[in-house]
Design a protein around this nucleic acid. Structure first.
Lengths: 265, 265
DNA sequence: TCAAAAGTGTTTGACCTACACCCATGG
DNA sequence: CCATGGGTGTAGGTCAAACACTTTTGA
């Protein structure tokens, strides 16, 4: 259970060239001509991270939303998120990760990637709040912990899973969260075609062919042919049987492991 | 994309963050319920937009950089940018447009798109500055205006064009701008394969086949076969001759116009 | 022996590449 | 005429979709 690490993905659009980056830490630095206008001349916005937490539940791609108990948008559903703690000197990724952990209790087996930044002046009626949206993919294995954590919620917040779909009319969403969800779906649909994000949505670290195929079918929204699907997966990724079997009616299913990329798309 | 595994990730690294400040009372209100914690409880970062201004010059994809005259990073080159004016209630996109116009004088014929948000705590040594990076593609037609504007620069700033390439060793770059440039190139390389961004880098609104092909060859970094290239472009985009001709040695070149998308990729 | 899992083989069509070759047009 | 622009045809390769079929395995 412990082997899955947190993966923090890179930017969003289709990018084929993997570039391993070291931590940018060294120099540090500032921007353009900030020295002229001391940064103090400009008002500062509040900064939050919002995290679209995705999981496959009951064969459907779903996201976690939280019901707002206070205005604005009282009674509407919102993507979980929170302020970036400037005092703690956390990076945006760290803030997103902390928020995710506070919300779900998860700190492993999660893929986390920056989606986009939303900053319309009136997206929050109270004050100017910029939000850096992330999306997180979590394995079904950890879902129970999450719901447990939610139930025992410190401040007893009401949370629920909703299908992530184009027609998001059903829950009334707060702020510009409808737009964020729609951007998330677009990103996922596009990215699964060229990046191994499906492996983060599996039931567990080990999985069967049927489970992997199911993730693809759910995200892409269409059926695939098993034989062709396996051929293709095996040509792109290194997928190795663990040796364990999962029994059922006929021949037992092999348990598999994802161990790397063979071919870049 | 196994490349960028964790950045926010390995537990060791995260430990550095002083999560210990529990502040049980108010701290955990913070989660998703903005209304409780008046946003004022959290420090606010400064917010800027930086714009990677791209154009094809002398057959090379180049970007505009500005030499810093003040510390930090005095003498280094930086991506142009500026603060988001919170008082004016501008959106992020509007701020990027304004900044672009202030810098280059351009307000049309420009493709502008949000790239990614960078917010490491020490990217600017003076204070916490979050920057939302954009990239802009400008037509060669407008380049002269830009350089004119730069020359007559109000604050006489020193600006220059540099090739956008992987090996960005030549100019010493300020802040985390090296990373931003590298992300820009990845985005461009990936996006030109499935979106009509090349048309924004052409000499003018009307263009010849050779010019369009040249944009693709420059961004992709390889030669293409003219006949196949045209076939493919015509199958994807609506490209119509204006009727005008451009004379040269042999048969005159037709001037073309991009009028839409035929096929989605 | 059964039923499901897993894998093989093959056909078809789409599309990309390369190259050969055509016609058009203005100097 | 020629040089270049613009376009067609086509052969070879890769790849994906679809379908038929075989083999494996535990109950």
């Amino acid at each position: 259970m412990g082997q899955k690490k947190i993966k923090c993905g890179s930017s969003g659009e289709r990018q084929k060239i993997p570039m391993s980056k070291k931590k940018t830490g060294e120099g540090h630095l500032l921007k353009d001509d900030l020295s002229n206008y001391s940064a103090e001349k400009y008002k500062r916005p509040s900064l939050t991270v919002d995290i679209v937490i995705c999981a496959i539940i009951d064969g459907v791609l779903q996201i976690l939303l939280i019901k707002r108990k206070h205005p604005p948008f009282r009674g509407c559903w919102a993507i979980p998120g929170g302020f970036v703690d400037i005092d703690k000197e956390e990076t945006l990724d760290e803030a997103a990760f902390r928020e995710l952990k506070e919300e779900t209790g998860l700190d492993e087996g999660v893929y986390l990637e920056q989606l986009k930044t939303y900053g319309d002046p009136h997206r929050d009626p109270r004050t100017r709040i910029i939000t850096v949206a992330y999306y997180a993919l979590i394995a079904q294995e950890f879902l129970s912990e999450v719901t447990k954590k939610l139930k025992a919620g410190d401040d007893a917040k009401e949370a629920a899973w909703f299908p992530l779909e184009i027609r998001l009319e059903k829950p009334k969403l707060a702020f510009d969260h409808k737009k964020i969800l729609s951007d998330t779906l677009i990103r996922l649909r596009g990215k699964i075609e060229y990046a191994p994000i499906a492996f983060s949505l599996l039931p567990k670290v080990t999985f069967t062919w049927a489970e992997l195929q199911s993730v693809y079918e759910i995200i892409l929204g269409r059926k695939l042919l098993a034989s062709n699907f396996r051929r293709k997966m095996q040509s792109i990724y290194m997928i190795t049987p663990t040796g364990e079997k999962k029994n059922g009616f006929g021949r037992p299913k092999s348990l598999l492991e994802w161990t790397g990329i063979k071919k870049n798309l």
